[in-house]
C-alpha cells in the first residue's frame, strides 16, 4: 500500500505544489485584506481543492490507474485505503492553512471555530468520497445499481447547490453557522464520513470490472 500512496503523491507532485501555492496566495490575500474574512478563505481553499481533485481524478481515470493497480499483487482494500488517505491528507493540508490564518487573525476565533473546522473537513471529505462511490458503482453492470448511482449523484449536487443558496442568504447565515459549529454536528459528520468511506471501499471491492 505505501509504495502506491507514495507513487500517487510523487506523480501529482507538480499539481500539488501549484495547488498549495494558490491556496497560500489566497491565505496571504485573506490575511492582508481586511474585508476578506475566514469564511471566504475557507471557500477559496475548498474550491481549489475540488478543482485539484477533479483534475487528478480525471487524469487517473484517463490513464486507467485502477487497471494498472489490478494487475499488481495487491489487495483491492489497499487501493481503497490509498484513495482515502490521499484525499484526506490533501484536505488536512488545506485545513492546516485555515489554522494558520487564524493564528494571524486570532480575533476571528469564535467559540465553535474548532468544531467548524472539523465539520467542514468532514463535509468536504464526504462529498469527495461520494464522487468516488458514484464512479465505482458504475462498474456494477446491473440496471438497479446504475439507477441508484445517478440518484446519488443528483442528491449530492442538489445538496451542494442548496448549501450554497442557504449560505448566500445573509439572514440565515449566522444562526446556521452557529448550529453547524458545534461538537454534535462535527462528530456526526465525522461518523458519516467514516461510513461513506467504508461504503466506497465496499463498492470498489464489488466492482465487476477494473478495466478502467
Amino acid at each position: 500500500m505505501w509504495p502506491i500512496l507514495k507513487a500517487e503523491f510523487r506523480y501529482s507532485r507538480d499539481a500539488l505544489i501549484l495547488t498549495y501555492t494558490i491556496a497560500v496566495l489566497f491565505l496571504i490575500a485573506a490575511v492582508l485584506i481586511e474585508s476578506w474574512g475566514f469564511y471566504n478563505f475557507m471557500w477559496n481553499t475548498t474550491i481549489t481543492y475540488f478543482i485539484f481533485m477533479g483534475i487528478v481524478g480525471a487524469s487517473g481515470i484517463n490513464e486507467k490507474r485502477y487497471r494498472l493497480y489490478t494487475v499488481l499483487p495487491v489487495r483491492p482494500k489497499e487501493f481503497a485505503v490509498v484513495d482515502t488517505l490521499y484525499v484526506l491528507i490533501v484536505q488536512l493540508g488545506m485545513s492546516g492553512l485555515w489554522v494558520l490564518y487564524l493564528l494571524f487573525k486570532p480575533d476571528e476565533i469564535m467559540p465553535g471555530t474548532l468544531w467548524l473546522i472539523v465539520a467542514n473537513n468532514a463535509l468536504i471529505l464526504i462529498i469527495i468520497t461520494m464522487f468516488g462511490v458514484h464512479y465505482h458503482a458504475g462498474f456494477f453492470e446491473t440496471k438497479r445499481y446504475k439507477r441508484l448511482n445517478w440518484i446519488l449523484l443528483l442528491a449530492v449536487i442538489a445538496g451542494i447547490v442548496a448549501w450554497f443558496q442557504v449560505g448566500n442568504s445573509r439572514s440565515t447565515i449566522r444562526p446556521l453557522w452557529q448550529y453547524y459549529s458545534s461538537a454534535p454536528v462535527a462528530v456526526a459528520l465525522v461518523l458519516v464520513w467514516i461510513g461513506v468511506t467504508a461504503l466506497s471501499c465496499e463498492v470498489f471491492r464489488r466492482r465487476k470490472s477494473y478495466l478502467a
Partner: peptide
C-alpha cells in the same frame, strides 16, 4: 498469485 503472472494486455497502462 498475481506475482506469478506476467501480463501484456490489449492495452498497456502506465504512469
Amino acid at each position: 498469485w498475481k506475482a506469478d503472472i506476467g501480463y501484456v494486455g490489449d492495452e498497456q497502462v502506465f504512469y
